[in-house]
Amino acid sequence: MNSLTKIIKYSFYDTWRSWWALLYGLFFLVISVTLLYFSGDFNKALVSLLNIILLLVPLISTVFGVMYAYNSREFTELLLAQPLKRNNIFLGQYLGLTLSLMLSLGLGLGIAFILFAGTAEESVHLGMLTLCGALLTAIFTGLAFLVSVLFEDRVKGFGIAILIWLFAAVIYDGLLLAFLVIFNDYPLEKATIGLTLFNPIDLSRILILLRLETAALLGYTGAVFNKFFGTASGMAVSLGALLLWIIIPLVIFLRKVQHKDF
């Protein structure tokens, strides 16, 4: 077993041992079971679940990521003293944490889904929701790790990480709306599609809503978005954008830690 998998394994178990990951999974299990059980309407439950996932998954991934990165500082320094590749140490820690969070989320939603198995179409919707949740986990954990390496001061790092989450979850949409209001006289459909690619939370929201609230999105402009995000190539572009959101911060993170003086 090489050092990378060993570190992934260690980080993974470490997170699970701390109960937090378990609690996180349990939370999603309870929420999704409650929503599916009480709403009666599968699509409506999914919309509510979507709101919760879009809000909490990035937030919790960010907080977990920052906390983990700062708290395992001493252990990291210990590992650095060993004859191990730096990339493996940091990538291992990142993957270990991300995978355990993804597993919690997947288990929470998955068990709920098994209990309330819907039609094939509904399971595709739920699969899409889980996929978006998993991607968001990877994105925001990555961003949190990057922040932790950029700022020595953990209070400052924590603040910045939360700010990034706030920006993506709320402020970005406000700016987007302001942009749309100001340039209302121009045809903005394509520009808007472009702008949504820059926010992983918006992107995930649209990808899922296109499947759930088709009625509202089939209005004139909705049709333009539908045409883009609804097709296979549009899907590929959006998923590609989400993957880039994982890869780019991670690459910067790994390059930073290569040269960082611990």
Binding site: V47, L54, A169, D173, L180, R205, L209
Partner: peptide
């Protein structure tokens, strides 16, 4: 065009 913001937290 603001239909893209449907169900956004903002």
């Amino acid at each position: 065009t603001s239909v893209v913001l449907l169900r956004s937290l903002f």
